[in-house]
């Protein structure tokens, strides 16, 4: 019994260390608890608000038929011709560039460069055989055209490339 008392006297510093460690642990867990973000872990190991953040992003490109509302004639012309599967925004700019809150913001630019046409129709390695494609030089020679930066549009109307040959 006497020995135990003696031992206790000499372990004062150990108990003080243990008390400090205990306090530190409590502080760490308390701080952590306070800092856990709102909505954490409701649906998995993530913050639910992160999904809301993504949903809040406004689309840059419009819907597939987003242009139809204001431009029904052009829409109809494209959809009934050979470029029917093209999105308007591929050759123009994304809808949000042009429209804001349902109102026209900036005029819609048009890419008239032959390079745009070449992205799809230049004959290069890898394109599926059935797809219409030309060697630009050969095609110009055959058709008797003069090369220029917008040369394709000399003959082809971009909305109806084969129907409206000039």
């Amino acid at each position: 019994m006497g020995e135990t008392v003696k031992k206790e006297r000499h372990t004062k510093h150990v108990y003080r260390v243990l008390i400090i460690l205990g306090l530190m642990t409590i502080v760490v867990f308390a701080v952590r608890y306070v800092l856990i973000p709102e909505g954490w872990g409701e649906y998995g190991n993530f913050r639910t608000g992160a999904v809301a953040d993504m949903l809040e992003i406004e689309p840059v490109h419009g819907r597939w038929d987003g242009c139809k509302k204001c431009h029904p004639d052009q829409w109809e012309a494209v959809r009934t011709a050979d470029h029917a599967t093209l999105s308007c925004e591929s050759c123009h700019e994304p809808l949000s560039f042009h429209v804001e809150n349902g109102r026209r913001k900036t005029p819609m630019p048009t890419d008239r460069s032959y390079k745009l046409c070449a992205r799809c129709h230049r004959r290069i390695q890898g394109r599926p055989e059935g797809f219409p494609q030309v060697k630009i030089d050969d095609h110009l020679e055959e058709m008797g055209g003069e090369f220029g930066p917008e040369v394709c549009l000399d003959c082809h109307a971009s909305h109806a490339p084969l129907e409206g040959l000039r």
Binding site: Y43, T48, V51, L55, P59, K69, N101, G102
Partner: peptide, 13 residues
């Protein structure tokens, strides 16, 4: 999780 999404906000008010 049901979140209200403003649909077609580009063209709608």
């Amino acid at each position: 999780l049901v979140i209200a999404v403003p649909v077609d906000s580009l063209l709608a008010d």
